[in-house]
């Protein structure tokens, strides 16, 4: 067992979300549902940006409900603003190792290897503004890679990318999750993305986060809320 949400209730103004489920270690999970349904809210709670009104969140049986974001075993990727515009690509990745940006030779080597892994070999000295949107996300992924956190959270990271590029990126994510043996949580509103790389899907709709269900099974026999979302 990797993550457990025990009767968690999160509210934000009039909106509220309930979640009570467990996620197995190493699984790749999609958080799927209509926009405004609470996908990002749930991810925020797991990452520590929102404190639940009630309930507890556990990681491997440790209560992390009130652990600050940095102390949680999570690496996170947003849709945008993942990079600091005034830092070079290498320094942006280096933040995953040390926030002082004083790097040993070995650490520089690690970073360059990570760059190679995400297909940005030799671009370490570039500034984020010199890169395309897809390349910027690759830099952010490289940082996730070297952080080696047991949980990798992605908040609609490739929504702005084209289909071919997105597939490439999803492959990269899968590869990274598998090499670091991480549990993957990915917010998406695209059923295709969910079925492309995930094992299980958590459906989030109408104020409730459902238990994870095997993605293929879910799509084969969608419950009412999902059917409504899929437009079937």
């Amino acid at each position: 067992m990797s993550i457990k949400l025990d009767n968690v209730k999160i509210s934000h103004g009039k909106f509220s979300l309930q979640a009570d489920f467990e996620i197995e270690k190493g699984k790749k999970i999609a958080l799927l549902g209509p926009s405004g349904g609470g996908k990002s809210t749930l991810l925020s709670a797991i990452a520590g940006f929102k404190t639940p009104d009630s309930g507890r969140i556990f990681f491997e049986n440790t209560d992390i409900t009130s652990t600050p974001p940095a102390k949680r075993p999570i690496a996170l990727l947003f849709q945008n603003h993942n990079l600091f515009p005034h830092l070079s690509v290498r320094n942006n990745i280096a933040l995953g190792i040390t926030t002082t940006l004083k790097l040993s030779l070995k650490e520089i080597e690690t970073i360059d290897k990570a760059l190679l892994r995400v297909g940005l070999d030799g671009l370490g000295n570039k500034m984020p503004s010199e890169l395309s949107g897809g390349q910027q996300q690759r830099v952010a992924l490289a940082r996730c890679l070297i952080r080696k956190q047991p949980i990798l959270c992605l908040d609609e990271p490739f929504a702005a990318l084209g289909p071919a590029l997105k597939k490439e990126m999803l492959d990269l994510v899968q590869e990274i999750a598998e090499t670091t043996n991480a549990t993957l949580l990915m917010v998406t509103h695209q059923p295709d993305d969910a079925s492309y790389i995930t094992d299980q899907t958590i459906l989030i709709a109408e104020g409730k986060a459902h238990r994870p269900v095997t993605t293929n099974k879910l799509f084969a026999n969608p419950p009412a809320a999902l059917a409504k979302y899929l437009g079937n």
């Binding site: 940006f49 974001p69 945008n80 603003h81 926030t99």
Partner: peptide, 18 residues
């Protein structure tokens, strides 16, 4: 400043001075 930047900083454990 986009809120993601502060979230990112919190995630990476960047200190207040950082």
């Amino acid at each position: 400043i986009p809120v993601e930047q502060f979230r990112l900083a919190a995630q990476l454990g960047i200190s207040t001075s950082g």
